[in-house]
Amino acid sequence: MRTRGLYTAVSLISLIVLPFVAGDFYINLATQVLIAVVFSASLNILVGYAGLSSLGHAAFLGFAAYICAGTTVTLGLPPLVAAVLALAGTTLLAAIFGAIALRASGLGFLMITLALAQVVWGLAYRWVGLTNGDNGLTGLTRPHPFGLSLDSPAAFYLATLLITGIALTVIAILVGSAYGVSLQGTRDQPRRMAALGHNVWLVRWTAFIIAGFWAGVAGLLYVYYQRYIHPSVLSMATSAEGLLGVIAGGSGTLAGPVVGAALVVILKNYASIYIERWNMLLGAVFVLIVLVMPDGIVPGVRRLLARRDR
């Protein structure tokens, strides 16, 4: 327990110190990792704790990003109002999509989430009057909360780190709460949970909404980081990358999406420098992880450490 606390403290200090010692490239890379962590952690609520695999989670990330960019650039709303509207809109969208997708389970659920996300992607591409189509929305400036400028990579990184910390803490509290336990119960034995008096559909629907909300938070971070939004963000590839992060890191664990998302983002950024078809490398790494550690990196490493200590 003491060693774990020590590791956490060292990691936290390293993350805080990073922008003061690293160059802009690495600070920006770390920011991208943190955004991917929030996105994968939100998806992990569904995949890992509710047992519902979704291929449409990017819809919420992109929807929040579009609302934020659209209301700020087109309507000229202040950043705080835009952020609140984006999160409220995304949560509402998650409630609607959840109500539709949860009519099925398993493969059916997966395909419905994919189909719904493709609808949002299609709208972003084709509704040019609203979304500016393939050109995307530009002209967004980063907010200045409490008079602090987030324009520099270091300042934006620290703000993202703070929000990621809040997101992971809230998600950790959620999955450890009575609700989180009942969510895991619906994942393992839904019929049994119903026989214990739980409304399984409601538990899952709530999880879908919560996951959508945090994906919306990731979307806000993303759009303020890029200062630009394009329909490709809503594509299946973004959803699949998030899912890859969850599965590679270890679904149903708090640290899994952190490790998995970091791996995906770092591989994507580094590999694309050297290899044109970096997707192939990402796929090969994923296959290797599945072969060596079928439960993901975090549970796999834990098992190795437990074996070593025995």
């Binding site: 895991q184 393992d188 049994r192 119903a194 026989a195 214990l196 008096g197 399984v200």
Partner: peptide, 21 residues
């Protein structure tokens, strides 16, 4: 779930506890 809330408790065959909890 409504039947359970109405006052029926079930001890299922094979125990069926939640193994990961």
């Amino acid at each position: 779930e409504t039947i359970s809330r109405a006052g029926i408790g079930l001890v299922p065959q094979g125990r069926r506890v939640f193994p990961s909890l």
